[in-house]
Amino acid sequence: MKNGMIHVYTGNGKGKTTAAFGVVLRSILSNKEVFVAQFVKNRDSSELSISNYFDNIDIVQYGEGFFIRRSPETKDINAAKKALADVKEKIISQKYDLIVMDEINIAIKFNLLTAEEVLDAINSNGKTEIILTGRWADEKIIERADLVTEMKEIKHYYSKGVLSRKGIDK
Protein backbone atom coordinates (compact mmCIF):
# COMPACT_ATOMS: atom_id res chain seq x y z
CA MET A 1 0.00 0.00 0.00
CA LYS A 2 1.20 3.51 -0.81
CA ASN A 3 2.33 5.61 2.11
CA GLY A 4 -0.02 8.27 3.39
CA MET A 5 0.53 11.79 2.14
CA ILE A 6 1.45 14.77 4.29
CA HIS A 7 -0.73 17.86 3.77
CA VAL A 8 0.03 21.35 5.10
CA TYR A 9 -2.64 24.06 5.26
CA THR A 10 -1.00 27.35 6.26
CA GLY A 11 -1.15 31.10 5.64
CA ASN A 12 -2.80 34.12 7.22
CA GLY A 13 -6.21 33.57 5.64
CA LYS A 14 -9.25 31.90 7.14
CA GLY A 15 -9.95 28.28 6.30
CA LYS A 16 -7.08 26.05 7.39
CA THR A 17 -8.99 24.08 10.01
CA THR A 18 -12.11 24.29 7.86
CA ALA A 19 -10.27 22.69 4.94
CA ALA A 20 -8.91 19.98 7.22
CA PHE A 21 -12.41 19.22 8.48
CA GLY A 22 -13.60 18.94 4.90
CA VAL A 23 -11.16 16.06 4.48
CA VAL A 24 -12.22 14.72 7.89
CA LEU A 25 -15.84 14.63 6.75
CA ARG A 26 -14.95 12.88 3.50
CA SER A 27 -12.91 10.34 5.44
CA ILE A 28 -15.50 9.50 8.06
CA LEU A 29 -18.20 9.22 5.39
CA SER A 30 -15.90 6.72 3.63
CA ASN A 31 -15.78 4.65 6.84
CA LYS A 32 -12.19 5.62 7.56
CA GLU A 33 -10.87 6.04 11.10
CA VAL A 34 -9.94 9.64 11.98
CA PHE A 35 -8.03 11.25 14.85
CA VAL A 36 -7.87 15.02 15.33
CA ALA A 37 -5.38 16.54 17.78
CA GLN A 38 -5.98 20.23 18.41
CA PHE A 39 -2.63 21.49 19.63
CA VAL A 40 -3.38 24.94 21.04
CA LYS A 41 -7.16 25.02 21.18
CA ASN A 42 -9.19 24.46 24.31
CA ARG A 43 -12.45 26.20 23.57
CA ASP A 44 -15.87 25.11 22.48
CA SER A 45 -16.19 24.88 18.73
CA SER A 46 -18.84 23.32 16.51
CA GLU A 47 -16.49 20.71 15.04
CA LEU A 48 -16.16 19.06 18.45
CA SER A 49 -19.72 17.75 18.19
CA ILE A 50 -18.95 15.69 15.06
CA SER A 51 -18.05 12.73 17.29
CA ASN A 52 -21.64 12.77 18.60
CA TYR A 53 -22.75 11.67 15.13
CA PHE A 54 -19.94 9.37 14.01
CA ASP A 55 -18.14 6.58 15.85
CA ASN A 56 -15.07 6.61 13.60
CA ILE A 57 -13.60 9.93 14.77
CA ASP A 58 -11.76 10.92 17.93
CA ILE A 59 -11.02 14.59 18.70
CA VAL A 60 -8.81 15.71 21.56
CA GLN A 61 -8.03 19.30 22.52
CA TYR A 62 -4.62 19.63 24.16
CA GLY A 63 -4.39 23.43 24.52
CA GLU A 64 -4.04 25.15 27.86
CA GLY A 65 -5.41 28.54 26.90
CA PHE A 66 -4.90 31.19 24.29
CA PHE A 67 -1.20 32.05 24.67
CA ILE A 68 -0.67 33.93 21.41
CA ARG A 69 -1.07 37.26 23.21
CA ARG A 70 1.14 36.10 26.10
CA SER A 71 4.33 34.13 26.38
CA PRO A 72 3.82 30.37 26.40
CA GLU A 73 4.20 28.82 29.82
CA THR A 74 5.56 25.44 30.90
CA LYS A 75 2.01 24.06 30.90
CA ASP A 76 1.66 25.00 27.20
CA ILE A 77 4.92 23.26 26.31
CA ASN A 78 3.99 20.16 28.31
CA ALA A 79 0.55 20.01 26.67
CA ALA A 80 2.09 20.25 23.18
CA LYS A 81 4.65 17.55 23.97
CA LYS A 82 1.86 15.29 25.29
CA ALA A 83 -0.17 15.93 22.13
CA LEU A 84 2.78 15.10 19.89
CA ALA A 85 3.57 11.93 21.83
CA ASP A 86 -0.07 10.84 21.52
CA VAL A 87 -0.11 11.59 17.79
CA LYS A 88 3.14 9.73 17.19
CA GLU A 89 1.74 6.71 19.04
CA LYS A 90 -1.39 6.83 16.88
CA ILE A 91 0.68 7.13 13.68
CA ILE A 92 2.77 4.12 14.64
CA SER A 93 -0.31 2.09 15.59
CA GLN A 94 -1.73 2.56 12.08
CA LYS A 95 -5.24 2.43 13.60
CA TYR A 96 -6.20 5.71 11.93
CA ASP A 97 -6.49 6.39 8.22
CA LEU A 98 -6.35 10.18 8.74
CA ILE A 99 -4.71 12.21 11.48
CA VAL A 100 -5.13 15.98 11.71
CA MET A 101 -2.57 17.95 13.69
CA ASP A 102 -4.61 21.14 14.03
CA GLU A 103 -2.56 24.29 14.78
CA ILE A 104 0.69 22.31 14.97
CA ASN A 105 2.42 25.08 12.99
CA ILE A 106 1.49 27.57 15.75
CA ALA A 107 3.01 25.20 18.32
CA ILE A 108 6.26 25.21 16.35
CA LYS A 109 6.24 28.98 15.77
CA PHE A 110 5.88 29.67 19.50
CA ASN A 111 8.59 27.13 20.42
CA LEU A 112 6.31 24.63 22.15
CA LEU A 113 7.79 22.03 19.81
CA THR A 114 10.54 22.00 17.22
CA ALA A 115 10.08 21.25 13.55
CA GLU A 116 12.47 18.34 14.03
CA GLU A 117 10.27 16.80 16.73
CA VAL A 118 7.23 17.06 14.47
CA LEU A 119 9.15 15.63 11.51
CA ASP A 120 10.26 12.72 13.66
CA ALA A 121 6.61 11.98 14.46
CA ILE A 122 5.30 12.26 10.91
CA ASN A 123 8.27 10.37 9.46
CA SER A 124 7.23 7.36 11.54
CA ASN A 125 4.26 7.21 9.18
CA GLY A 126 3.12 4.20 7.24
CA LYS A 127 -0.24 4.41 5.48
CA THR A 128 -1.80 7.28 7.45
CA GLU A 129 -2.81 10.50 5.70
CA ILE A 130 -1.64 13.41 7.89
CA ILE A 131 -2.79 17.03 7.81
CA LEU A 132 -0.87 19.81 9.60
CA THR A 133 -2.61 23.16 9.99
CA GLY A 134 -1.77 26.61 11.29
CA ARG A 135 -0.14 29.84 10.24
CA TRP A 136 3.59 30.14 9.86
CA ALA A 137 4.46 26.64 8.64
CA ASP A 138 8.16 25.99 9.14
CA GLU A 139 10.21 25.60 5.95
CA LYS A 140 11.32 22.12 7.02
CA ILE A 141 7.69 21.05 7.36
CA ILE A 142 6.86 22.54 3.96
CA GLU A 143 9.81 20.75 2.39
CA ARG A 144 8.69 17.39 3.81
CA ALA A 145 5.02 17.79 2.81
CA ASP A 146 3.46 16.23 -0.28
CA LEU A 147 0.84 18.99 -0.55
CA VAL A 148 1.02 22.57 0.72
CA THR A 149 -1.84 25.03 0.48
CA GLU A 150 -1.47 28.63 1.61
CA MET A 151 -4.61 30.46 2.64
CA LYS A 152 -4.13 34.11 1.75
CA GLU A 153 -6.30 36.75 3.35
CA ILE A 154 -7.60 39.26 0.84
CA LYS A 155 -10.44 40.59 2.96
CA HIS A 156 -11.92 39.50 6.30
CA TYR A 157 -15.04 40.70 8.11
CA TYR A 158 -13.11 40.54 11.40
CA SER A 159 -11.45 43.84 10.40
CA LYS A 160 -14.96 45.37 10.50
CA GLY A 161 -15.51 44.11 14.03
CA VAL A 162 -17.42 40.91 13.19
CA LEU A 163 -16.32 38.29 15.68
CA SER A 164 -16.28 34.50 15.23
CA ARG A 165 -19.74 33.12 14.55
CA LYS A 166 -20.88 29.69 15.71
CA GLY A 167 -21.28 27.29 12.80
CA ILE A 168 -19.26 29.49 10.43
CA ASP A 169 -16.00 30.41 12.15
CA LYS A 170 -16.13 28.20 15.24
Rank of each mutant, 00 (worst) to 15 (best):
M1E: 13
K2P: 11
K2Q: 13
G4E: 07
M5I: 10
V8H: 00
G11R: 06
G11I: 11
K14P: 05
T18D: 05
A20S: 15
V24S: 05
S27P: 03
I28F: 09
K32N: 13
V34M: 05
V34I: 11
F35L: 15
A37Q: 08
N42D: 15
D44I: 08
E47V: 08
E47W: 01
L48H: 10
S51W: 00
N52G: 00
N52K: 15
Y53A: 07
D58Q: 12
V60N: 10
V60C: 06
Y62R: 03
G63S: 09
E64R: 14
F67Y: 14
R70L: 02
S71K: 15
A79L: 09
I91T: 04
I92M: 06
I92S: 03
L98H: 10
I99V: 12
V100A: 09
D102W: 08
I108T: 04
F110R: 04
N123H: 11
S124M: 07
E129K: 08
W136E: 13
K140D: 14
K140M: 10
K140N: 13
I141W: 03
I142H: 07
A145F: 08
L147K: 02
L147G: 00
V148R: 04
T149H: 02
K152S: 04
E153R: 08
I154T: 10
K155Q: 09
K155A: 06
Y157D: 03
Y158H: 12
S159K: 15
L163S: 11
S164C: 07
R165E: 14
G167K: 06
K170C: 07
K170Y: 13
